[in-house]
């Protein structure tokens, strides 16, 4: 049973990353009509920024948790201002191709300087060690990742669904021209939205740095799984993305315990099943 609980925990952690990343993809898609293929590369950048902050600036994990999403978010906003905004009105596919190119550039540059092996990032002192829960041993850091991600996801949901800013955002998603007519600066909102989505990805990167090591290609394969998560959950609802992300992480963890050979593929197989039964995705509207 110990092993089962351990895999469930790993599943929850992966689920946190799926949730944070698919949430960002959904928010970006809503405003920009772009599937951000660079999401995995920006997640990786988040982890690297945390690594640089610690090793070059002596800035610890807690500050990195705040600074890395801001720094990568600003990088994202520059990308939006200099490139993505020129895609307005073009076919969706060009957004995918452009961000794929950006992902290749970012990953290629990091691979040149850091190879493909992982760099270690130590767990902060306050989160070292573990707790005995009676039925299992819980490493404190892993518990922290799950709870913190959940809080961030719910905060994002609250921001978008319950605040005035979120209401503008949702309105601009539905009808940007009309929202502009009300005097709201929609282009600036689009830039900020992209920054927010990218910041979430970078945050996931910082969280994963002590667990998965910091590698240039850490986001490359992850983003494909997250795409499958997005296809399963649909991008129509914020809560839908969060729940699907965590649920798929748990299912993947269970698969690792019961049938490890399929743990790499289970999310994709589930995607196929969902497409066969309910082509629009679990929470999605027709695309």
């Amino acid at each position: 049973m110990q092993a089962l609980y351990a895999q469930l925990l790993v599943g929850l952690i992966n689920g946190s990353f799926y949730a944070l990343l698919s949430l960002g993809l959904a928010v970006i898609f809503g405003m920009l009509n772009i599937i951000n293929f660079a999401h995995g590369a920006l997640y990786m950048m988040g982890a690297f920024v945390a690594y640089f902050l610690l090793n070059l600036g002596g800035i610890n994990y807690w500050w990195a948790l705040l600074l890395a999403p801001i720094i990568v978010g600003i990088f994202g906003m520059i990308l939006e201002r200099t490139m993505l905004k020129f895609l307005t009105g073009l076919d969706h596919l060009y957004g995918l191709l452009l961000t794929f190119g950006i992902a290749l550039i970012v990953q290629g540059v990091f691979q040149n300087y850091f190879g493909s092996s992982g760099l270690p990032y130590a767990i902060p002192d306050q989160l070292k060690g573990g707790m005995n829960l009676g039925f299992m041993f819980l490493p404190v850091y892993r518990g922290w990742v799950v709870i913190f991600s959940l809080v961030v996801c719910l905060a994002t949901w609250f921001l978008i669904e319950k605040t005035r800013l979120g209401a503008y955002l949702r309105a601009a998603t539905e009808n940007p021209t009309l929202v502009r007519a009300f005097g709201i600066n929609v282009p600036r909102m689009i830039t900020l939205t992209y920054g927010l989505g990218v910041g979430l990805a970078a945050l996931a990167g910082v969280l994963s740095a002590p667990i998965n090591q910091v590698r240039p290609l850490m986001g490359a394969d992850l983003i494909i799984v997250v795409f499958a998560v997005v296809v399963i959950g649909g991008m129509g609802s914020i809560m839908g993305s969060i729940i699907t992300g965590f649920a798929l992480g748990v299912i993947e963890g269970l698969t690792k315990y019961f049938y490890p050979e399929a743990s790499n593929t289970v999310v994709f197989v589930l995607m196929v099943l969902v497409l066969l039964v309910k082509p629009t995705g679990l929470t999605g509207r027709a695309a």
Binding site: L97, F100, G101, L104, I105, G108, V109, Q111, N112
Partner: peptide, 10 residues
Amino acid sequence: VTVIQGSIFV
């Protein structure tokens, strides 16, 4: 090469 390919995409 990857970086150049990415740049060509962009």
